[in-house]
């Protein structure tokens, strides 16, 4: 999933303060799963904003709405009416959702309520970890399904650096050394020898380095 984290309330208050009527718009998929922007978070944030502005003696109308996904037109349309009634939208979706909403509602400012952080998983209760950089050229098969591009702080393709100690990364002793995970897993799979192979430099054109990416599916065009 896409993992996000709600922005600090002070930053949000500053962003929405020029507007009298604000819609807090939740997204019911990724950001709901990581407790950043689902229906529950929308309710809590909207209450906090009402309280904060009340305290300031600032009369504002804060309304709430949550759709299944802010990155899919079918669901976005469900929010059209609510958006139309407001001066600004505070979207709790990931960056893609914020932009998709803005693309469809040209006259309404759309503000980000979360910081989109990474593509990851909930490894443990309350612990989210980054797993994928969306490089566009997946090599997980070579590395025992551990992404060294994402999970090695130096993006090393050919083995661990000299800072791997007791299975941990020198950059953050609370982070597993990705290469230790690769080696452990390849050993279990009986494929350790395949790590002797030289991996040549990557072609970064498939990644964001080649500019914003597009995927065109001809078979989907009616």
């Amino acid at each position: 999933m896409i993992v996000a984290e709600q922005k600090k309330i002070s930053e949000i208050i500053e962003m929405v303060s020029p507007y009298r009527k604000v819609l807090v718009l939740g997204c019911g998929t990724c950001v709901k799963t990581c407790f950043a922007g689902g229906e529950d978070e929308v309710a809590v944030l909207a209450s906090l904003l009402r309280l904060a502005f009340e305290k300031q003696g600032n009369s504002k109308e804060i309304s709430e709405f949550t759709i299944e996904r802010q990155c899919e037109d079918e669901f976005i349309q469900e929010a059209a009416e609510a958006i139309g009634r407001n001066e600004a939208v505070l979207s709790l979706a990931c960056g893609a959702g914020v932009q998709d909403i803005a693309r469809r509602f040209k006259n309404v400012p759309v503000l980000p309520g979360v910081n989109t952080t990474f593509v990851g998983v909930m490894e443990d209760r309350g612990l989210f970890t980054e797993e994928c950089l969306c490089c566009g050229d997946c090599r997980l098969g070579q590395y025992g399904a551990v992404c060294v591009l994402t999970r090695c702080a130096k993006k090393l393709s050919n083995g661990p650096c000299g800072g791997s100690r007791n299975g941990k990364c020198e950059v953050n002793p609370e982070t597993d050394c990705a290469w230790q995970l690769v080696i452990d897993r390849m050993r279990e799979l009986g494929q350790l020898d395949s790590l002797r192979e030289y991996i040549p430099p990557r072609d970064w054109r498939t990644s964001n380095a080649g500019g914003p990416r597009k995927l065109f599916r001809e078979d989907m065009v009616a």
Binding site: G159, G162, N166, I183
Partner: peptide, 22 residues
């Protein structure tokens, strides 16, 4: 450079071999 003291030890010589081969 090579660090014989880093972990995982079993991979340290493989990595040395890769550096020399490269």
């Amino acid at each position: 450079a090579a660090n014989p003291f880093a972990d995982p030890f079993e991979y340290r010589v493989i990595r040395l071999a890769k550096k020399i081969a490269a």
